[in-house]
Design a protein around this nucleic acid. Structure first.
Lengths: 102, 102
DNA sequence: GCGTCCAATACCGTTTCGATCTCGCGCCCC
DNA sequence: GGGGCGCGAGATCGAAACGGTATTGGACGC
């Protein structure tokens, strides 16, 4: 499982179409289709029902969707936290020459 | 940022050594060193201080560590949730011939 | 100064990923 | 009932990413 797969899954779940999700993600349709399949394969259970009109979330997909959104949000927060901490308490001023206590 | 990078980061943070983290992760040392660097590069801030005895977490690294652990745990839960939902409410019994209303 | 331990770099083979092209399937329209 | 069109899925190929081995550079102890 990769973050890309999770992003693909969320996009497909929200759009209901692989093609439209691919458009939103700025990638082609086959990679999205393949990653969704790979995700289902890894989880051992299908997440979508393939209908002639697109993709419909199964119960397993709905359960996964909540967590998936949380994961993506957590990734965002993690980056922000690291950057924020670095701003508040910078590691060590390189101070090549003029030492300035601060 | 990838889940592998997050896993590598947590291992290095907990071990304090790139080499030991690599051992725990069953990979060689250079890939771990590289991914940590790539992660720092993507975040725009260093996460570790390189010392002659190993790697020490910087404030930014400590902030990131909490979130990183949460992300990995959330990934585990996501998979469990999908599998659990599939067990409780299976999508649709194929029922090729004998129709059996539940 | 040399040996040791650490992370970082160079280089290479393999794997993975995405893009293009094509196909099969089911519905709508006529 | 046949043709056209939407959809997802499969095959194939080139590019990027990943990991492994070999090697380098820096700091500490003797």
């Amino acid at each position: 499982m990769s973050l890309a797969q999770i992003r693909y899954f969320v996009a497909v779940a929200e759009e209901g179409h692989v093609g439209r999700a691919a458009e939103r993600l700025h990638v082609a349709q086959p990679p999205v289709s393949r990653q969704i399949r790979a995700l289902e394969d890894e989880l051992g259970t299908p997440l979508f029902a393939r209908t002639p009109r697109g993709m419909t979330l199964l119960p397993s997909g709905e359960a996964f969707l909540d967590h998936a959104r949380g994961i993506l949000a957590a990734v965002e927060r993690a980056g922000d936290a690291a950057r924020g901490a670095a701003r508040e308490r910078p590691p060590l001023t390189p101070a090549p020459r003029s030492s300035a206590a601060g």
